[in-house]
C-alpha cells in the first residue's frame, strides 16, 4: 500500500465534510475518484497530499504518518496538482515548470543538471517545449493546464495526485492528458490518483474507480464492477444505461435523465 487514509475526518473550520473514511492506494495503479459536486473528492485528495490536515484519523505514505515526515521529503515522492492554481503575472512556462524542482534544491544547489533534464523531459512530455519562453498568462486554457501538469511532472515523484487535470480542455486535449497519465503509469510505473468528472474517460483510463457521495466511499474497484446502473442512481441520482465501450470494452455511461425529474 503506497498511500493510505485510515479513518480520516476532514473538513474546514467546524464543518466536517468527510468522516471515518478509509482508502488504500496500491503501488503502480491509476485510481480515479468520481462523485457529484461537493461530495468531498477534492477534500480527500488534498488530505492524501498533506495539503489538508485531518482532524481525526491519519494518512500513511509507505506505512509512515505523512504529517510526521519532513514535508520536503514527502515532496520528493509525492506530487500534488491542486484545482485551479494561480501564478504571478509574467511567469514563463519554463519558469513555472522549473519551480517544480523546488524540493530537490537547496540554497547552495539551485540548478543542477538533474534539474535541467527533469524540466526538459517534463516540457517534452506535455508538448510544451516550444512554448517555454511564453508567459503563462498568454497561453490558452488547455496549454496553461498542461504547463501546470508539466510542473508536477518536473517534481519527478512516482506518486502523483491530480485534481481535475482535464478541466478547461477540449475532448482531444483531455484524451491527450489522460494518455500521458497512462504512459506515466505504463512506461514509468508511476502511481496516479486523480479526480475526474467525465465518467467514461475515468472508466477507460483508471485501474480502479472510487465512487464517493456525502463524504463516504460508496464503491471501489475495477471500473467494470463499480460503474453500474444502480451505482449511478445511488451516487449521482442519475438514470442511465451502461453499455460496453465499443473501443476499449470498458463501461460506457449513456444518461437518460436525473431521478428528480
Amino acid at each position: 500500500m503506497r498511500l493510505q487514509a485510515v479513518d480520516v475526518r476532514l473538513g474546514y473550520g467546524d464543518r466536517v465534510i468527510v468522516d471515518g473514511l478509509d482508502l488504500g492506494i496500491e503501488a503502480g495503479t491509476v485510481t480515479t475518484i468520481i462523485g457529484p459536486n461537493g461530495c468531498g473528492k477534492s477534500t480527500l485528495l488534498r488530505a492524501l497530499g498533506r495539503l489538508l490536515r485531518p482532524s481525526g484519523g491519519e494518512v500513511l505514505l509507505d506505512g509512515k504518518r505523512i504529517d510526521k515526515m519532513p514535508t520536503k521529503e514527502v515532496a520528493k515522492v509525492l506530487g500534488v496538482l491542486p484545482q485551479a492554481p494561480t501564478a504571478p503575472e509574467g511567469l514563463t512556462v519554463a519558469d513555472l515548470v522549473a519551480r517544480g524542482r523546488h524540493p530537490h534544491q537547496t540554497w547552495y544547489r539551485q540548478w543542477s543538471s538533474d534539474d535541467e533534464s527533469a524540466v526538459g523531459e517534463a516540457l517534452a512530455m506535455t508538448g510544451l517545449h516550444d512554448l517555454g519562453e511564453r508567459p503563462l498568462d498568454e497561453l490558452s486554457g488547455g496549454q496553461r493546464q498542461r504547463a501546470w501538469i508539466s510542473m508536477a511532472l518536473a517534481q519527478g515523484t512516482d506518486l502523483l495526485l491530480l485534481d481535475e487535470p482535464t478541466t478547461f480542455l477540449d475532448l482531444a486535449h483531455q484524451v491527450e492528458v489522460l494518455e500521458l497519465v497512462r504512459r506515466l503509469h505504463g512506461e514509468l510505473g508511476r502511481t496516479v490518483v486523480m479526480v475526474l468528472h467525465d465518467l467514461n474517460l475515468a472508466a477507460r483510463y483508471a485501474d480502479r474507480l472510487v465512487a464517493m457521495r456525502d463524504g463516504r466511499v460508496i464503491a471501489a474497484g475495477p471500473p467494470a464492477e463499480v460503474l453500474t446502473e444502480s451505482l449511478l442512481a445511488e451516487v449521482f441520482d442519475l438514470d442511465a444505461k451502461v453499455i460496453e465501450d465499443p473501443v476499449a470494452g470498458t463501461p460506457l455511461v449513456v444518461p437518460i435523465g436525473t431521478r428528480h425529474s
Binding site: 497530499g49 519532513p70 514535508t71 521529503e73 515532496a75 506530487g79 500534488v80 523546488h102
Partner: peptide, 8 residues
C-alpha cells in the same frame, strides 16, 4: 497549496 505540494 502548490507551495505545500512542493514541500515548502
Amino acid at each position: 497549496d502548490v507551495a505545500r505540494a512542493l514541500g515548502q
